[in-house]
């Protein structure tokens, strides 16, 4: 039997890696991928609590999170294409047209 705390530590570590990836990368596609990593980390802890509390609702929430993640990726990548058409770069440092 694997203890619950192992799943939570794994989830915390993967979530933090996602946060770091979002903060330090310049490439906007990798930033979107980091958001996916964070969502996956949350899914792990939801599924782990669902199993240890013997409550199926955690898995239902994971289902909803995956559906929202799919919608988010479609919109995010469409935004990146629209952005790239206006300014041919993926570097977030150079996308500063709305900076005050």
């Amino acid at each position: 039997m694997v203890p619950l705390s192992w799943y939570i530590v794994l989830s915390a570590v993967v979530f933090s890696i996602g946060v770091v990836g979002f903060l330090i990368r310049r490439n906007i596609i990798i930033m979107l991928i980091s958001i996916e990593i964070m969502l996956n980390a949350v899914n792990i802890s939801l599924a782990a609590f669902s199993h240890y509390l013997q409550d199926i609702r955690g898995q239902i929430f994971v289902f909803f999170v995956i559906a929202v993640a799919a919608a988010e990726v479609a919109i995010g990548l469409a935004l990146i294409i629209a952005l790239f058409r206006n300014k041919p770069t993926l570097n977030v440092d150079e996308i500063n047209i709305m900076k005050w």
């Binding site: 530590v9 915390a12 979530f15 933090s16 770091v20 903060l23 330090i24 990368r25 310049r26 490439n27």
Partner: peptide, 20 residues
């Protein structure tokens, strides 16, 4: 490939892990 303020992001990540 990294922003110039990458050490700050790394520190934030370490703080996150410590918090959890």
């Amino acid at each position: 490939k990294f922003l110039s303020q990458w050490p700050l992001g790394l520190i934030t990540g370490v703080v996150f892990i410590m918090f959890f």
